[in-house]
Design a protein around this nucleic acid. Structure first.
Lengths: 210, 210
DNA sequence: ATTTTTCTGTTGCAAAAACAACAAATTATT
DNA sequence: AATAATTTGTTGTTTTTGCAACAGAAAAAT
C-alpha cells in the first residue's frame, strides 16, 4: 500500500507521543492478534510482514489479507459473522503499533499529538484499505489460475513501475492468497514460462510482451 | 448492509438541506455512474438496487459489488488500476443521492446541516463497507461452487435471523456474483437439494440441518 | 393479448483444477 | 557442520468446473 501522505514519517514522529498506544515485536509465526469478539483495537504494522488467515473445516488455510510495512488492520475492519476465528500471523520478525479506535473516533482524553493527527489521516487510510480490498476481489473473481496469476503480476508490475518485480510471498503462500491449489498453480506457472508470458528466477518475475 | 444508526432516517431528514447534493432517478439497466478518472463523487442509493460491474476481455461480466437501499458507493472507494472501466448499473428503478467527498473531508462551505452530520457518520459507513468487502473476499476464496453457495446462504440466513430467506439476485446474477459458471451453479444447486442440504422454491431458500 | 426477451433448468462433453504423492532444493535449527 | 523442516518443482489420476446448446417458464414490452 502506498499513501498520498508519508504515513511512515508521521508514525516515526508521533509513535511515542501518546501513552495510550503501545508497540510490541513478534517473531516469525507468532500470533499478533486474533479477531474474536468486538474490540476497538487498531494495529499498524511498523516493520515486517504478517497475514490475516483463517482455517476452515476442511483444514484449508485461507490467506484473507497480507500486510506489509505501514498497513493498517484490526477487528474494527472485520465484523465477524462466521464461527471461524481469524488470526494475524507474523511472517517474519515484525513490530506492531496498537491503539484504540475509540481514541480516534472520539477524542483521545490524553491531550496527545498522536491521535488527533491520526484521526485526520484515518479516512484516507481506510479509503486505501478499501481500494486494496477491491483489488483483491477483482483478483479472486478471475475464473482461472492463469488469469489470477497474470492479473496479480500486472498489479505488482504497476506498483513497481517495472516489468520485473519480486513476489512478496513464498509460492506456497501465493497459492493460498489466490485461493488455488499449489501444485496446479505451479503447473500453470510452468506453462506461462513455456509459452513466453513470463520469465521467473526464484520469486523474481518479469512480464514479457507476448 | 445494516448500520448501528438509522442512516435511512438521517438521509430523509437531511437530503434537501444542502444545495451541493443532488438526487436523480434511474430506470432499469441505466448506467448510474462509471468509474473512470478520479472524481470526488460519493453516492448513496436511496431506493432500488444497483450493481457495480466490469466486463473483461473475454466478455465475462463480473459483478464486483451489489448495492441495495442506503448503500454507499463511488469512485472514492475504488482507485482504478486496471484498464477496464467499471459501471454502476441500476437493476430496477432507483434513486441515487450524489455528493462530493470534498464536502465531507474538508468542511462544506455551504454552512449546511447535511455535510457535517454525514461527516460524523462517514467513518462508520465506510467501516461497514469494509466489513462487506471482507465477507465478499471470504466467499470468493471458497474453493468450490458448493462451498460458495453454502457460505453465501449462511450469510443471508444470519442476516435474516432465519433458516429461510430470499436470494436478492436472479440466479444468473448470483452466478456472476460468486464468479462461477451459471449452468455449473445450477447443477450444484440441484445436488444440494437432492442431498438434503436445502429446499428451494424460486428464489426462496431454506437451509436444512444435514 | 400476443410477441419478444430474459431467466431457469438440464445435459453431454471438453477443459481445468484439485488431489496425492514424491524427489530435489533451499532454509532453519541445533 | 549436520540434521530437520519447509518450500519448490513435477506428474498421473480423479473430480469439478466451464462451455455449448436447447427447451420450457416467467417477465417485460408492444
Amino acid at each position: 500500500m502506498s499513501y498520498n501522505f508519508d504515513i511512515g514519517a508521521f508514525i516515526e514522529n508521533f509513535r511515542n507521543s501518546c501513552s495510550r498506544t503501545y508497540e510490541k515485536t513478534f517473531s516469525k509465526n507468532e500470533v499478533v492478534t486474533s479477531y474474536i469478539r468486538k474490540r476497538q483495537q487498531v494495529c499498524i504494522l511498523l516493520e515486517g510482514s504478517a497475514d490475516l488467515v483463517r482455517y476452515d473445516r476442511n483444514g484449508n488455510r485461507i490467506i484473507i489479507d497480507h500486510f506489509s510495512k505501514n498497513d493498517i488492520f484490526g477487528e474494527v475492519f472485520y465484523n465477524i459473522t462466521t464461527n471461524n476465528e481469524l488470526f494475524v500471523e507474523a511472517k517474519q520478525k515484525s513490530t506492531v503499533l496498537f491503539y484504540s479506535y475509540d481514541n480516534i473516533a472520539s477524542n483521545c482524553k490524553n491531550n496527545c499529538d498522536f491521535h488527533p493527527t491520526l484521526s485526520k489521516y484515518f479516512n484516507e487510510l481506510i479509503l486505501y484499505k478499501i481500494t486494496d480490498l477491491n483489488m483483491r476481489i477483482e483478483l479472486l473473481s478471475k475464473r482461472s489460475i492463469r488469469e489470477k496469476l497474470l492479473s496479480y503480476f500486472n498489479l505488482l508490475s504497476t506498483k513497481k513501475f517495472s516489468k520485473s518485480f519480486t513476489i512478496p510471498f513464498s509460492l506456497t503462500d501465493l497459492a493460498d492468497y489466490l485461493s488455488v491449489d499449489r501444485s496446479a498453480m505451479m503447473r500453470e506457472l510452468k506453462l506461462l514460462k513455456e509459452e513466453g508470458f513470463i520469465t521467473k528466477t526464484g520469486n523474481q518475475i518479469t512480464l514479457l510482451q507476448h
